[in-house]
Each structure stands twice: as structure tokens, then as C-alpha cells.
Design a protein around this nucleic acid. Structure first.
Lengths: 368, 368
DNA sequence: ATGAAAGCGCTAACAT
DNA sequence: ATGTTAGCGCTTTCAT
């Protein structure tokens, strides 16, 4: 593409942009062809010089195309492409106050739940030509705050997934840049949450219809907002369906927790168990199999999240699907919206629906 | 017009931090204390003024502490903390040529293999106080190149995981910033690869010892460097152990592929199957269970990667562990090393060992 | 429609 | 040891 077409009036100009290169790059570039050497390090000045216009015109050609004459713009753009020039976003940000970046901070990059959020956020950001920083808070509130501070000036907004920060700290956060919460709700902050209380309702109702009367719930981290939502949903639904609840846990939201808690589930004499998340549910499933307890015949199991794993185990896990990908997208969308919005407005608070996915780990309880 | 901002040419600038805030942020900040409101947007000038020193001294207090008097530095740092000042890295980068960022590009953020790489890269980068951009190439070479271009000026280096680029394109890539390859080897480029050929050797040798004489291999993407390594390792090891090989595939490296290929594996009459990766292996496992074919009694199965999933399924998957986390770490390490190194030197090429993890999907073939 | 020049926040000479 | 100043690459008045 680079070599062939020379339709522009700039075609006969000498190959420019090499003066920058001589700074030392070419120490590396021994046997490399000219087309390779043509560096991406050209600046707006190189383009201006090569196109025979001022830097202002080059800048305008990129940022407000209508402000420059058709022919000029075409020439500038052609030269720019030839030189592989693209505006330096950091420099641009210095003056515009916009970085073109967003940050994503999650408590644990190892948790599949956040992979969906990351994927969604990244995809949505890319659509708007935004780049995303990602960082792992290591389940620590302090680290999370440190990361926010580190990112602050480099981004136009931060998506905070399942923040481990206390509500007060969350509320006290700076408003620049904007922080969008995922899986948390705090007054005055934009957020996107999943209606997991309703998901719980669906799960319990499903169990009730199957005839279960006594269910166990293995709860997640005590300070987790999601867990509180689920417990709330559980209380309400259980009452409505006259189901007895055995509370187990709390446990860390991991596979190993499931392994460990499984026997307690059995001892509880519940005919069904709801786990804080799929990871725990799959752990339970695994241990149950070792214990030779048939699922779903002897015990029904329901998870939360619908991570890919849920469909891969055997029997396939019935679970409450939480749209993590969409949550990531939505968070970035809110961020971007807020940036383009003229004035301040009340913070967006999106709620995404949860959906029960019936697979193979739920059935009627064994007749007693 | 927003009058306040860039008014006075004569230096007497208004307290920036505050006028920024008044743009509307504090509409949200009702009952919040002054110390909270004090924005993080203060610049080096604010600190200099408040500490009664020049901006140069403030700068030095951060970048070369020894160059300023003990007492002065203490005062500056105190004021800085009070003002919640931290140097703007974009501005710093403009002059130093260092951004303090690295980029990570992978073909598919949904693939668990890359989650390890991401985690490792992020952790290692954070250790050096670097931030990481992450992007999803969507299994497309073109998108990958576009992402590289988009990142180029914002990072000091790029980690390219399992690049889908053709070798020529890879070789033709700019050397600024440095690109470190993961799971690819190309002349003149730093890289970290996992010795999966040796991993394959271990797997085949294990199978041979168990008594298998006929094995199937379900290969991954044709253009995948890893797949070529594995086939190479397989050929050699199979020859050495006098094992007959049935080649199946290629298939996309996903769970569903395993589901689909399982029957072909059975028809192949191999007594063991090696899958391109764990995802495919687990898919095979799943379908085999439906087919009521006992694993490992009737068929042994081995995967590659050792993603968390491998230990969670039942029976637990025997697999060749590839140190993805370490690969991510190593890649960033190489990047950082290269940045601090004085002159150019021959590109680092790290090879990480693969390890066979024997779990429950391999056993001696059924006596015939 | 275009150009000259100021300046975003910072660091690195070059003074003092 | 500290201050002054010249930019880094860019956008944006303000002139022309």
C-alpha cells in the first residue's frame, strides 16, 4: 500500500521524515529496507514541512477537517500517511484535557467473572477509539486506591469492578476523572449493576417448582455487595415460597471453597444448594462426585455468573447468568457519555437483568 | 465561553486545581470536607508556589532526590502530598521519551491462556511502576497491526501474545517501541516461548510407558506457531517410541471443537488422544462422557496449557503445563531490561520449560 | 482558509 | 543547591 500510488500533488516530494530517525533508531536497522525504516516517530512538524503548510493546518486537518480547504486537507493527509504520522495522544491530551484512555481496575484478574467485564469494556472502548489500562487490585482496598491514584491523570475515566473499597471511601473518591462502578451502588456515582437479587428469585422459584423445601446457600465474601444482594433476594424468595434456608459460609469465591464446603452442604440435609458463584458451585460438584452423591438426583446445585466453565463441566451447571460482557460495555458507555455530555447530570445507574440458565444440575428432590 | 482557564500570559495563574473542579464536579460533593475536595489536578507549579521553591526543585525532588537539600525535599514532598500532587506522566513522557506504559496485545481476551499472560504481565509491570494497556486483536492480523499503531506512541514497549501476523510482517515491524513476542520466534526480535515441543515429548513418553502404541493428535490453528512446535515434538517423540500417530483437525482452539472432534477420535481407534489445548481436551472429555466411553480406561486424554479448568473437570485432566503467568512476567521483564540497557544488544530469547501434569485422564490402554 | 504564537505540565540544560 | 529557560508535540486563540 505504501509504495505504489502517488496520485496526490505531493507525490514528487522527496522522502521526508528521515531526519528524526537519525536520532539513533537506525542503530538497530542495519539491513532493513527503506520502507521499513520510515519511522512512526514523525511529528506534526515533519508533516507540516513536507506538505508545505503550517502545523496548525496539519492539526486542523485531523481535528476539524471542515476548517481546512478540501485540497489542502487531502494533501496533508496523504503526506501524513506517507510518513506514517499519527498525532501523539499524550501531547494532545496535555492541551485538550482528554487522554483518550480509560482505566479498568478489578480485584482479581484471575477471576473469570472479570474477564467478561474486561472483554466488554475493551471492545466498547476500542469502538470509540479509546485505549484501556487494566490493573489488578489484588483484593486489597489500599492497592485499589493506589491504582486509582496512579491512573488518575492518564485516563478520562475509571471503571471500578466489584470494588473492595468501603462505601465511605468510595463516596470520597475524586470526581476527576469519573469513576463508574460495576457491581456496586453508591449514592452520587454512576454505576452498572446486575439484578442478582432477581436472579436469586428466579433460582429459588425454579427450585420451589421442582418441589424443594430446604435449600442451602453458600455465601461469598462478607463485604461483597453482590453477596448482600443475593442474600436479600434469597430471604424474600424463600419466604414467598415457604422454603427453609440453611446459611453456609462465607467462603472465598473460589473453586477450592466449593471443595471444602461440600460436606457441610451434605450434612445440612438440604435438597438443593445455591452457591455464591460458579467457581464455588463447580467445586461442590467435584467433591460431591467424589462422595458419590448423585447430582441432580440426590442434590440440586445452582451457581451464579455463567462463566464458560459452567457449560463445560458434567453435569452442566444450572446457573444464574450475569451479563458480565454487557456490564463492561455499559460501564464504558456511561463513561464516554459523561465525557461528551455538556453539563453535569445525575449519574447514570444501569441495572442489567440476570437470567436463570437451566442445565443439568437441578431436578426434583428424591421422594423421601 | 469558559473564561478562566488560559487567561494570563504573565504567569499569575489562578489556582488551577480549584477552577477545574468548579466545572461542575462539586455538584456531587455536598457534605464533603475541604480536604476531600482538594483535587488531584494540581500541577508542579502549584506545589512550587506553595513550597516556595521553583518548579525545577519540585521536579528534582521527585526524579533525583539527591540533587536537592534534605530539608527542601522534605518540605516539597510534604506540600505535594498535602496537595495530592503526582507528576503528570504524559507530560513527563513528552520530554523524557518514556511513557511508563507497556502494551499487551493478544488474539483473544476470551481465551484463558492469555489471562495468565495478562496477569503475569500486569503484575510485573506494576512492580516497576509501569501501567499496562491491553487490547484484543480479535484473531485478526489486520486488527493487530492497527492496535500496534494505535499504541505505539503511548507505550515504551509492546508484548505481542501469540501474534497472528505473518513472519514477514512481524519482521517488518517498527523497532520503536520494542516489541516482545510471546509464543513466537522471529529473527531479530526478543521473545519468550514455552518449550512445548519438549512438553509434547514428555506427554508421548508418558503414554509410551503406559503402553500406548497408537495416538491421535487434534491440532490447532494451522498458522499457529505453537501448533507447529507441538507437531514437531510429536513426530520426533512418536518415532523414538515407535508410536503410530493419527492426525486430526486442525480445529479452532475451543471447547466446541473438542465436542465436535470426539467421535472422529473414537473412530481413529487410537488408545490415547493429545489435544492442541485444554479447552479442546475438555470438550473431548465432555463428549466422550456422553458417548459413555470411559476415560481413562477406554481412552486416555492429554491437553496443553494447564488452565485452571483442567483441574476442575472430572476426571481431572492430565495436561502439559505451560507457564503462562511466567511468560507474561518474562516478556515485560525483557521489555524493561531493554529500556534500561545502554546500547542495543542481541535480542533476548527466553525459553520456559513445559511440565507434564499427571492427573486422572491417562492410564494404560485396555488389553486387547 | 491559513499562519504565528502561546502554553498544556513537565524535565534537562544551563546559569547562578 | 537552586532558579531560569527552552522545549517535548500538540491544539487553539487571535491575526491575517
Amino acid at each position: 500500500m505504501t509504495g505504489g500510488r502517488r496520485s496526490s500533488p505531493a507525490g514528487d516530494r522527496p522522502p521526508v521524515g528521515c531526519d528524526r530517525l537519525s536520532r539513533g533508531e537506525n542503530l538497530y536497522n542495519h539491513g532493513i529496507t527503506p520502507s521499513t525504516v520510515r519511522s512512526a516517530l514523525s511529528s506534526i512538524h515533519d508533516v507540516a514541512r513536507a506538505a508545505g503548510v503550517s502545523v496548525a493546518t496539519v492539526s486542523r486537518s485531523f481535528t476539524s477537517p471542515d476548517a481546512v480547504a478540501e485540497a489542502t486537507r487531502a494533501r496533508v493527509l496523504a503526506v501524513a500517511q506517507e510518513l506514517r504520522y499519527a498525532p501523539n495522544r499524550a501531547a494532545r491530551g496535555l492541551i485538550t484535557g482528554r487522554t483518550g484512555n480509560v482505566g479498568l481496575i478489578v480485584p482479581d484478574l484471575g477471576n473469570p467473572y472479570f474477564h467478561g467485564v474486561l472483554q466488554g469494556a475493551q471492545a466498547r472502548a476500542r469502538l470509540a477509539d479509546y485505549a484501556v489500562f487494566v490493573a489488578d487490585g489484588q483484593e486489597s482496598a489500599a492497592e485499589e486506591e493506589a491504582l486509582i491514584d496512579a491512573m488518575r491523570k492518564q485516563v478520562d475515566g475509571i471503571v471500578l469492578g466489584s470494588s473492595r473499597l468501603a462505601p465511605v471511601r468510595l463516596a470520597a473518591l475524586d470526581h476527576s476523572p469519573t469513576v463508574v462502578l460495576v457491581n456496586r451502588r453508591v449514592a452520587g456515582r454512576p454505576s452498572v449493576v446486575v439484578d442478582s437479587a432477581d436472579g436469586m428469585r428466579q433460582a429459588v422459584s425454579h427450585l420451589a417448582q421442582l418441589g424443594h423445601r430446604r435449600c442451602a446457600y453458600v455465601s461469598g465474601p462478607r463485604r461483597s455487595w453482590s453477596d448482600r444482594q443475593r442474600r436479600r433476594g434469597l430471604r424474600a424468595a424463600a419466604a414467598a415460597h415457604e422454603i427453609e434456608v440453611v446459611a453456609l459460609g462465607p467462603v472465598p469465591p473460589q473453586f477450592e471453597s466449593g471443595l471444602r464446603i461440600a460436606e457441610a452442604v451434605v450434612r445440612s440435609e438440604a435438597t438443593a444448594v445455591l452457591a455464591y458463584n460458579d467457581l464455588v458451585a463447580v467445586g461442590i460438584l467435584r467433591r460431591l462426585a467424589e462422595l458419590r452423591i448423585a447430582v441432580p438426583e440426590e442434590l440440586s446445585v445452582i451457581g451464579f455468573d455463567d462463566i464458560p466453565l459452567a457449560a463445560m463441566v458434567r453435569p452442566a451447571l444450572t446457573t444464574v447468568a450475569l451479563p458480565t460482557l454487557r456490564a463492561g460495555e455499559a460501564a464504558v458507555e456511561i463513561l464516554l457519555d459523561g465525557l461528551s455530555a455538556a453539563g453535569p447530570r445525575r449519574p447514570a445507574a444501569r441495572t442489567l437483568p440476570a437470567t436463570l440458565i437451566r442445565r443439568a444440575t437441578t431436578a426434583a428432590p428424591r421422594a423421601t
